[in-house]
Design a protein around this nucleic acid. Structure first.
Lengths: 341, 341
DNA sequence: TGCATTTGCTAAATGGTTTTAGCAAGGAAC
DNA sequence: GTTCCTTGCTAAAACCATTTAGCAAATGCA
């Protein structure tokens, strides 16, 4: 369809120099002693021919492929979660790198295949991302390149990027308190096992810890705590419907946006208005939050920034071990009353 | 972090044979005359050393990288749309290929960079996917490898994978008709310009053509057609709220799920029940559809299958030009009454 | 036995880039 | 007039797998 690729040798020939010289000049080596004239000639030749280096050949020689693997249990669970990928893509693009995206479905065999496929292609780094699980299972295979855990943790890879759930939890309570809602407050979605760090792991329990910390700092307490194993729309609906049979809460603190959506449905059926009768705050800033009416006030998961940070950590020098916490910011829409004077 | 990579030479040495022999055996060449014993020795050696071929080196020699580029305007607009990627990933994985995912944001400059980055990495094929736009803009750069348009069309690349919108449109009408709803039917979201093929291009106008075809085949006609440029939740809400001031429809045919969600909100406010008072059918089978109550009956976009097909077309021999239509299937939930006897 | 063919394997070239080692010419220092 | 730097450049090796061309031994055929 097209003539043969232009190689470095072609550029060198046109410039009247050796491939060595051309390579040194085009890669911008610092301490070379080639003349300014040579630089000019090589750049001109490269531009004229539209030269683009063959990344495979370069990778063979340098062991650097300018590509990194993004290995995820799921590629997207919600549109919002795909912000992890989007942020990573943008950061990779900015650094002229490319993302190899691999999905594992959480299956060990597929995870193993994915890691091998990535390593075979000489990736410069690996991002192990979690859309669902937090504590990520990893097959026992050595990964010979820098590795970052994204939205999850694993003992073998100490560098991780996580949302700052503790502060996020505090923000949610603060939002309610500042709107004057300090009473008849119900927590929706809490699961005692979670909180003990048993299941979805620490990050969710940190969210709860932040909530509890801010509550007690302000002398507030929940009137009730509705727990649920899953956090889907239908769970929110069921929990709140049952609640409304007995109680009339003033505010609901939902642990994610889907639960909140279910709560909206139950409140709507009960003819209760938001935020007049009942105020709501939740977490995630899922796509849903903007669809609801009134819009849902929620503490956003900073997925995009997290994805970006993961790539930047990989690309910028030696990996800093430890947890890199990305702030969660409050997105105010209409589900809580305007702040108290 | 790890010892040096095992190379083919190492395998050959351990097996007591030449690299030539090892290569031929491991790549499974058909007509070679190497002994069964040699095969056994090489395989044993490869297994013992845990040999994995260096894809970069292989790419250099064979011009095949076992990787294909997935270049998309957006990586996901809804969770559902990310099915395009998910399907592509699964098919690539099955063929031991890998996906280079690139996002362009619809910007020409970024699109150009993405194509170059992919070509530089010797991808075996390119998928140009569209999450939003249907008629895809492409910078004027030659792509020297097989290319498939996914969920979009472009004159320069005749092979495309599209949903079968015409039949999908017919199904939606059929669903309503079979539930006995043939009267007081309103179309929500239609835009006259679209239908003339002006904007989002043919595929949406095919959806409408299918709808109209089935309507007239059954002697049905819309009581009203509400048009809107955008198809977001708020548009659906506004359109239907305005409609309800004057009319009392029996059924709404919404052109996507977000419009339908908006319609739910307006109907809820007006205290109309679904499907008792008003039935709804829409398109896409977005994540939303299952969240609503009652569940939304919708004609699914077969995103996952489409992504899969795109990869398979690339990988299986010469590209078949033309449009490859993937059927849209109806997903019945609770928003239309049970079928008429 | 003599010649051709088949069998079983290997040497060496190839792909495109980077990098090491070093050459030739000119100038400076002694 | 040597010797020693410096400057400006290049030859060739290296990276690793694939592939072409071909070699030596064994076998088949007459």
């Amino acid at each position: 369809m097209q003539k043969k690729r232009v190689t470095l040798a072609d550029v060198a020939r046109l410039a009247g120099l050796s491939p060595t010289a051309a390579s040194m000049i085009l890669t911008g080596r610092p301490d070379t002693r080639l003349s300014a004239e040579a630089h000019a000639k090589v750049h001109a030749a490269a531009a004229e021919l539209g030269y683009r280096p063959n990344v495979a050949a370069r990778a063979l020689r340098t062991d650097q492929s300018r590509s990194i693997a993004f290995i995820s249990d799921y590629v997207a669970t919600t549109r919002f979660a795909s912000g992890l990928i989007r942020g990573a893509l943008a950061a990779a693009d900015a650094a002229r790198n490319v993302l190899l995206v691999l999905e594992t479905g959480g299956e060990p065999a597929r995870t193993l295949r994915a890691i091998e496929a990535a390593l075979d292609r000489q990736v410069d780094g690996v991002i192990l991302a979690a859309m669902r699980a937090r504590e990520v299972f990893l097959p026992d295979i050595a990964i010979s390149v820098p590795t970052v855990m994204l939205n999850g943790t694993n003992a073998r890879f100490p560098t991780s990027v996580l949302p700052d759930e503790f502060e996020g939890g505090r923000s949610a309570v603060r939002l309610l308190a500042e709107a004057g809602i300090t009473d008849r407050l119900v927590l929706v979605g809490h699961n005692p096992d979670e909180e003990r760090g048993q299941f979805r792991s620490e990050t969710i329990s940190r969210r709860l810890a932040g909530i509890r910390s801010e509550m007690s700092a302000r002398g507030m307490a929940f009137a009730a705590e509705l727990s649920s194993w899953d956090w889907e729309v239908s769970n929110g609906y069921d929990l709140v419907r049952r609640l409304l049979r007995k109680d009339r809460p003033r505010g609901l603190l939902c642990l994610n946006d889907r639960l909140a959506f279910g709560a909206y449905q139950a409140l709507g059926e009960a003819r209760l208005s938001i935020p007049g009768d009942v105020a709501l705050v939740s977490f995630d800033n899922d796509e849903l939050a903007s669809y609801l009416r009134p819009g849902l006030t929620t503490i956003a998961l900073p997925h995009q920034k997290m994805g970006q940070l993961a790539v930047e950590l990989l690309l910028n020098g030696p990996l800093a071990a430890g947890e890199h916490l990305v702030p969660m910011s409050a997105v105010s829409r209409g589900s809580i009353p305007a702040a108290h004077p």
